[in-house]
Structure formats: structure tokens, C-alpha cells
Amino acid sequence: MEDNRVIKTKDVNFYYGKFRALTDISMDFEKNRVTALIGPSGCGKSTLLRLLNRMNDLIDGTRVEGEVLFEGMNIYDPDVDPVEIRRRIGMVFQKPNPFPKSIFNNITYGPRLAGLSDRVELEALAEQSLKQAVLWDEVKDILGQSAMMLSGGQQQRLCIARALAMKPDVLLMDEPTSALDPISTAKIEELIQDLKRQYTIIIVTHNMQQAARISDRTGFFYIGKLIEYSATEKIFTRPDIKQTEDYITGRFG
């Protein structure tokens, strides 16, 4: 049972300068599940996501209290290398952000810098990652072309493939479909369902239907606090807390 929980946060508080953005967050994330984080904008859900792979380190004047345990190790320990953490916990961003490089070089960028140099292996890895991201058939003949030429939906799947090429254990997704059209969104949602067989996925979304469709567990955030966290089905049908119900039913947003 203990092994099943890949990431655990314990009493996490997070500050931007003097502003407390997260208050006493204790949460477990289970292996091979999709966990959705929902809540009105500014509630701290994206902040929490970026805490899990130490991306918030990049912002000046931030401070973390409490523990974030990844496979039992606190990733905020002083002797933990955030670079190592990020190799094992991948991230997909709100807006597709491919590098201005070729499709192939986008995919192999991470593995190469991690030390993989064999051309054959890199090609195999690129193919495998692109297939996982259901992009292979669309791009297999144009791998040498700039990733900037792809459509928004394709770019986002490329970014997912790029994250998968690092063979991470966990995939963090920060509103990955908010910049996409409905068809591309549907493709990505389908993809997420496939990916959870191999990966643990944590997704931030502002779209409640999306959370209901794809996630196994859902956490509802409000003003920096975790209000309610349980099985998605329960959250969307019979939430325990009034605030959750109000938000789900659209009484406030």
C-alpha cells in the first residue's frame, strides 16, 4: 500500500515574498493514476504542480515549508539536485513550447544532454516517444523540419513526446489543453488515458468536465488551501463540502 503513493506532500506552505500562496497542503498522489487539481484561478493549483518538480525555484523570492516526498525522499533537502528530480518528473506546460529546432532535435534534446549519444538508440527513442504521444504517423516523414511549423495541437503532443523521451516516472501537466481547439483537446485527453498505464499523471485543469472525464482522483483548491480530495466520481456527484459543491455546480468560479 505504502509503495503505491509516489509523491506525498506534508504540511506544505509556499510563499511568494510575504504572500502565502499555499497553506498546509498534505496530499498523496497514487501510482498509475490521473489526479486532477481543480479550483478557481489563483487558488494555488498551478503553484502546487510547479512545486512538485521544483520549477518554482526559478522565481526569485519564493520559499517552501514542509516536505515533498518523492519515493520517500524529500526533494527539498539541501543535497538534492533539482536537475535529477526534473529528469524523473516530467512537465507539460499550458502553452505548447517547442524549441526552435527540428522535431527530431526537440525530442532528443533531453536524452542527449543526459548522456545518450548513440544515433540508433536516439532514433528508436524518438520513434517510441512520438508513437506514445500519437504523433508519429503525422510527423515521421518530416522529422528534420522545424517544430515551429506544426499546428498548436501537434506542438503540444510533441511537447508530451519530448517529456516522455526522458522516461520519467511522473508527468505533470499544467492546463495542457487550454490553448488548443476541441479536436486537439480530445486527442490529448485520449492520450492521457493511454499514458496512465505507464505513468503517474498529475494534471491541473480549469475545465471541470475534463477533470471528470479523465481523472481518477480530484483535489479541489480554494485560496491556497486543499478543500476536498477524493475519488473523482465522489467529488462530482456527492462532495462532502459545500464550497466544492458550489464550485462544481458553477455557483461561483
Binding site: 518538480n53 520549477m55 526559478l58 536537475v83 535529477e84 528530480i85 526534473r86 529528469r87 524523473r88 516530467g90 512537465m91 506546460f93 502553452k95 513550447n97 517547442p98 524549441f99 534534446y109 533531453g110 544532454l113 543526459a114 511537447c159 519530448r162 517529456a163 526522458m166
Partner: peptide, 15 residues
């Protein structure tokens, strides 16, 4: 240079 380029690279575990 857009901040997203830096984030994308760092999130891949690149130093």
C-alpha cells in the same frame, strides 16, 4: 528569449 524556452529545457532535467 521567451521564458518558456528556459522552462521547457529545465523541466526536462537539463541543467
Amino acid at each position: 528569449v521567451p521564458q518558456t524556452f528556459r522552462e521547457a529545457s529545465l523541466a526536462l532535467g537539463v541543467s
